[in-house]
Amino acid sequence: MLQRTLPHARIPELPNPYFGKVRDCYDLENNQRLLVTTDRLSAFDQILAVIPWKGQVLTQLARYWFEKTADIAPNHVISYPDPNVVLGRKLTILPVEIVVRGYLAGTTSTSILTQYRNGLRDMYGHRLSDGLKDNQALPEAIITPTSKAFDGGHDEPLNAEEIVKTGLLAKSQWDEVSEKALALFARGQKMAAERGLILVDTKYEFGTDEGGNILLADEIHTPDSSRYWITEGYDNAFRNGTRPPSFDKDVIRSWVVERCDPYKDKIPDIPLEMIEKTSRVYIDAYEAITGQTFVPDTGGATPLDRIRENLKSFFAV
């Protein structure tokens, strides 16, 4: 299993490459873009590990959610030429990442739990009351936007007033994306609850097409963009002050945080058993969220060979 990984999708025959933290992308003609989801796991603004099947899980799980939420927010997807690949509309990504949170949770420096523990009560344009406990449900879902760090830098907290005042988004754009984000989150929470899961928080990325229309981009409600807890174990964990059982990359993030300050220290090598466990978490997440059995695509000598074959029609002549 550990040999069937996709650490990168560098394909020289494809034009106009852009390599992100997790996705390797290629801009085509006619305002189209190929997005190849690799098995890289990113956290703390760096790559931590390569997780078998992760890219396929993310692509197929995002597909599930895109199809279930298209009535709320139109998205960038045109087709799926490979289990790890989306052919999408090329968008101009809005410079604000929309993070919606339903619980006082998180491990990163921009999470509301980290800031709350540090004594902050006013954050992202919201006022949180004193006396909240770790992982407690908020009275209502809130949006905690951050700047979109396109150059691999660190995202910074924002609020609605700053976003409009500085011109990052027009007021009409902010109103549209915030309304859609809250509606998407509500749909996600409802569907997750029906599957015995809690959608704790998530991030959305939006972009504009050549006509200025706002479309949902990237991914939606995957274990990379979202935090899921298992409903059955939440109450007991909350009472005991422990971390609820989860379906997200906090498995490795929490392991790292217990051993170092990931923003200052060298991160220890991730042990093989943690990589295997995380792969299983992604697969379990797919099956728990969708109710479908995950079927890994083992075509080709390697995942990259399979992807190259499936993308031949897009190769530059």
Rank of each mutant, 00 (worst) to 15 (best):
Q189W: 06
Y204S: 03
W174I: 07
L199W: 05
I143F: 07
D155L: 07
D151R: 13
Q173A: 15
D201M: 04
K148Y: 02
S172E: 15
Q173H: 09
E140K: 15
S178T: 13
A160N: 11
P139M: 05
M191P: 05
Q173T: 13
A160E: 13
T202N: 00
W174H: 14
L169F: 02
W174N: 11
F185C: 10
R195T: 00
K165D: 13
K190L: 10
I163R: 06
L168E: 09
G196N: 03
E162M: 15
P139S: 08
A141T: 12
E194A: 13
E140F: 14
D151W: 13
T208F: 04
G152Y: 00
L158W: 08
P157N: 06
M191H: 10
Q189N: 01
S147G: 11
K165N: 14
T166K: 15
F150N: 12
M191V: 11
L158I: 06
K148N: 03
L138V: 06
T146R: 10
Q173G: 09
A160I: 04
L184S: 06
A170Q: 15
F150E: 13
K190T: 13
L182N: 01
K190M: 12
V177K: 08
K180S: 09
S172H: 15
G167K: 08
A137R: 11
T208D: 12
D201Q: 11
T166A: 13
W174C: 08
G152C: 05
K180P: 09
V164R: 04
H154C: 04
T146Q: 02
L169C: 12
E162Q: 15
V177L: 00
D151S: 15
W174R: 11
S147W: 11
P157F: 00
R187S: 07
L199M: 01
I143Y: 02
A170G: 14
Q189G: 00
L169N: 06
D175W: 10
W174K: 08
A183M: 08
E205C: 01
K180D: 04
L197N: 01
Q173V: 09
D201H: 04
D155G: 09
P145K: 08
P139C: 03
E176P: 10
L158S: 00
V200K: 01
Q136S: 04
K190C: 08
E205S: 02
D151Y: 12
N159Q: 03
K180I: 11
T146E: 01
G167V: 07
L158V: 04
I142N: 08
E156T: 09
R187H: 08
I143R: 05
L168G: 11
L182I: 06
K165R: 15
G167Q: 05
F185N: 09
A141K: 04
G153H: 12
V177C: 06
E176T: 14
E179D: 15
L182A: 05
G152Q: 10
A193E: 06
A193Q: 02
K190N: 12
T202Y: 01
G167F: 06
T208W: 10
A137Y: 02
G207H: 03
D155P: 11
D175R: 14
L138P: 05
A186S: 12
K190F: 12
N159S: 03
T166H: 12
E179L: 14
E161Y: 13
